[in-house]
Design a protein around this nucleic acid. Structure first.
Lengths: 240, 240
DNA sequence: CGGCCCCTTGAGCTGGTTCAAGAGATGTGG
DNA sequence: CCACATCTCTTGAACCAGCTCAAGGGGCCG
């Protein structure tokens, strides 16, 4: 069975066989996690590093008044928390959105990898920088785009990322997101997300089966969103 | 003369004398830059790495329709663009807000540092992670906070960061920001920023001399914003 | 001195929110 | 296997935070 994490790292930096093996070995300890389960909570101290192997999750912060702001979506291959390995404590929480398989890499092993494998370290750093780039793009969306543009832009981002990891077939992509989750990610109300999605559905860009969203026309979404994928930094992607 | 960058790195990781010297030496090439000058533009290919030694700058992105979204403020000690050293091209631009002194570290020298000085690399990585943390906090602001809370929260962040680098005296802090810059950072209009600042002024939290903003009551700002500084990760800060 | 920013304030408008209510789904326990 | 609770989706109607448009004033620089 292929390892989404190893595949992702490999797409960032060409790996020698032994690097790949070491990385694979580090992912030996896999846990199955149910949906809507907190992997880490804000304030937690360093523990093992988590890596998504399967399923979706999100980073989020809770506000004192009870609101939730999602600040990132995690897909197979994504790191959960280099942060906590390097910083003092988590400044946000991470929860699964779907049932998930998560590799738990002991902190010491991660440190050993970083110490001994400069190629890997470099790749980790790059993933970090790309994550940061995505955060900047979110800020642009929230600051300067209308609700429909924001939704469309998020869909474009998720579509592009899903495609990179082989989750797109025939230009169609299923997203395991509720309207509430989208609202929490974009700073909108669920009610308004509902109205916006209706528009996108009427425009033929998306479809909507129970429990999941389906992107049916990514080109049109990109048009609505004014989407430019340069920030995902996939141009120099290794081709197999 | 002290070097803001070395001081910052030192506050993240205790440096041996030789690490500090090497870092200092890397900053030998300093350029004076006028205000409102683009240090790097979106799409630029890797060049030297810039470090702010003095003055303020901001990262920003332009939208097709002409709008601008500022996605970060840079103060003395901050890296400008590890990004471009590690990724393929810049996904945003950086411009000075004030006249600035900027150290230009040749890319090869930076790579040598990273190669040869694990302590420094670790510190660089940490600064990266803190930057990311700040981006997440911005997303929370833009998604879930009212205009006045957003302004107050930004002021709190800048105040805390300014204090960390010794720019605060008597609980007062000058910020070289126009209302237009604040609007571009928070996704508001300049008109509305003006009204919000009036409120904060009337509440005694800020003052407002021509050409600069002055924070006069950080505690009250923190109260308005619901500010919690944990995301700046300064708890474990080295003392002296 | 003239031009260009930036700041300020007013008045009306609107995109998105809030509140409310109902209809499917899904899950759960008896 | 049904009854009930819970959650998400949907739609309508009223409201409001922040926007747009407009106009005037002050400081700085060439």
């Amino acid at each position: 069975m292929s390892n989404a994490f190893v595949d992702k790292i490999r797409s960032y930096v060409p790996l020698q066989a032994d690097d790949a093996e070491v990385l694979e070995a580090a992912c030996a300890n896999v846990r199955a996690i149910p949906a809507r389960y907190d992997l880490i909570r804000e304030g937690d101290k360093p523990g093992p590093v988590f890596v998504m192997l399967d399923g979706w999750a999100c980073r989020y912060k809770l506000l004192p008044e009870g609101g939730r702001q999602i600040v990132a979506f995690l897909m197979p291959g994504d790191f959960c928390d280099m942060h906590v390995a390097v910083l003092d404590e988590m400044d946000h929480s991470i929860a699964t959105l779907t049932p998930a398989r998560v590799a738990m890499i002991p902190r010491e092993e991660m440190e050993r990898l970083i110490e001994a494998r400069p190629k890997l370290t470099h790749a980790f750093w790059r993933t970090q920088l790309v994550d940061e780039s995505v955060l900047r793009a979110w800020i642009v969306s929230m600051g300067r785009r209308s609700a429909i543009e924001r939704v469309a832009h998020l869909m474009c981002e998720l579509f592009a990322r899903a495609r990179n990891i082989g989750l797109v077939e025939n230009d169609r992509c299923d997203l395991p997101l509720t309207q509430i989750v989208i609202a929490d990610a974009l700073g909108l109300t669920p009610v308004h997300v509902n109205r916006v999605l209706r528009k996108l559905r009427e425009a033929g860009a998306m479809d909507d089966e129970t429990g999941k969203l389906v992107i049916t026309n990514p080109a049109q979404l990109a048009f609505v969103a004014g989407f430019d994928d340069n920030y995902l930094h996939r141009r120099s992607r290794r081709v197999a």
